[in-house]
């Protein structure tokens, strides 16, 4: 057994966790932007916008994230292109998040009562204005708790990046486990670090559910 102190292991894991955080944030931000576009697509009146958006969301939700990651990581090799692990992970997680976020947000928009849009239209607002000033402000409140909840899913899903060789928290754990030959402690610590990243988000999500009561 290589002599690693507990402190050294924890230090290395925290360093690895930075990449987990960075990957999660990029997936959330990029996925959020794409998700917003997708969501707007799904509520469009035009079929040729709506159907592809719905189709994409369905496809992503109906397949394992790991397969999506493999397709993006290994697939381009067919065309003689190499995709680095971090980029493949980032792209896969972005696409994956965008679909789930779009679905969450779409649900919130549809949950705003039809009468709200009709009232706005009756006041001579255009569809886009009704969406912007009346529907979205209400939908955002409803969407916040599940969105925070989904951030937990994103953080957890970044662990898959280790499988294509991106050295984030999980992969750091694998390496340490191999050199220390102490997987019990190392993986236990890895789990604790993930828990420390995710649990606050879960609490925030739960808290928001009570704060953002829809009727207020």
């Amino acid at each position: 057994m290589t002599d690693f102190t507990l402190q050294q292991i924890i230090y290395a894991l925290v360093l690895g966790a930075r990449w987990t955080v960075l990957l999660s944030l990029s997936a959330f931000i990029l996925g959020g932007i794409l998700g917003l576009v997708l969501m707007l697509g799904t509520i469009s009146q035009r079929k040729w916008v709506k159907l592809p958006a719905l189709g994409f969301i369905w496809l992503v939700q109906a397949t394992p994230l790991l397969m999506q990651l493999f397709l993006i990581f290994f697939g381009p090799a067919l065309f003689g292109k190499d995709v680095p692990a971090w980029m493949a992970a980032c792209i896969a997680l972005t696409l994956w998040s965008s679909a789930y976020l779009a679905e969450i947000w779409r649900g919130s928009v549809l949950a705003v009562q039809k009468g709200q849009t009709e009232a706005a239209l009756s006041l001579a607002m255009l569809r886009g204005q009704a969406l912007r000033y009346v529907v979205l402000p209400q939908a955002v409140r409803m969407a916040l708790p599940p969105t925070a909840g989904f951030m937990v899913q994103i953080v957890k899903s970044t662990a898959l990046a280790s499988i294509v060789g991106f050295t984030e928290l999980m992969k750091t754990g694998n390496i340490l486990s191999n050199v220390t030959l102490d997987p019990f402690v190392v993986y236990g610590l890895v789990a604790i670090v993930y828990f420390c990243l995710c649990y606050p988000l879960s609490l925030v999500s739960r808290k928001m559910e009570t704060v953002f009561d829809v009727t207020r």
């Binding site: 009562q113 009468g115 709200q116 009709e118 009232a119 706005a120 239209l121 009756s122 006041l123 001579a124 607002m125 255009l126 569809r127 009346v134 402000p137 209400q138 409140r141 009727t215 207020r216």
Partner: peptide, 23 residues
Amino acid sequence: ERKLQKLRLKVGMIFQQFNLFPH
């Protein structure tokens, strides 16, 4: 849509369920 907007500027509507903007 634009023509509807011009029309709706002349027509006010009150609903059974009020449909006030709650926010």
